[in-house]
Amino acid sequence: MKPSPSRSLRRTLLRPAPYVLSATIVGTVALVNFHPQASQSTFDISDTKLAKVNPDGSPTAATSPVTTNEQMAERRKGEVPFIPGPARTVVGSYTDIWPEHPFGKIQVAVTVESGRIIDAKVVRLKTYDGRSEQIANFSVPVLIQDTLVSGTTDYDHVSSATYTSKAYHKSLQAAIVKLTSTPPADAPAAANDPLPGLS
């Protein structure tokens, strides 16, 4: 049976404290990828300011996508190496990247399997002015790229030239299309919505 968002969220919260946090500084968005010594970890894009991260890293918004290993293996065929691990259901969580300052709000869904990040998607983005939209335009694809890169085995991170709004947009759209073209069968409908404010 399809789990309700609140139940999914509770299940997420019951897991060990996440080791991946995000932090925002003025005009700058930071994604913190915090690797624990333990092999098992969950992923969470959490509060925007480190000082304000909940002690348990709990996300602020509801719902999480659930994808089977088979779906994920199919999706990743021919792309990046499949990450071996015990067969178990993925866990994701959504939260606001910028809940407390005027740049806007974003919700990101992240899928984790065997302690590795294997999927990430923006499910909601709200911006308030041109500047916030500009920041969102360059930060979102970077967040997605960084998140996905840390799920591969071939390399740790990516060095590339800086994004601009046009390219960010293209990159973002490409990422969104890529991420939503094969949505989990039981993903929430919001995951397939185009990004408001970024068209």
């Binding site: 404290a17 080791y19 932090a23 500084i25 005009g27 700058t28 968005v29 930071a30 994604l31 913190v32 990828n33 915090f34 690797h35 624990p36 010594q37 500009q134 920041i135 360059f138 930060s139 970077v142 967040l143 960084d146 840390s150 740790d156 991170h157 800086t162």
Partner: peptide, 16 residues
């Protein structure tokens, strides 16, 4: 600066 900064930290012997 208006850029995106991401961190990847392996704490080693440090506590979280």
């Amino acid at each position: 600066m208006g850029t995106v900064v991401s961190f990847d930290v392996r704490p080693g012997d440090l506590t979280e």
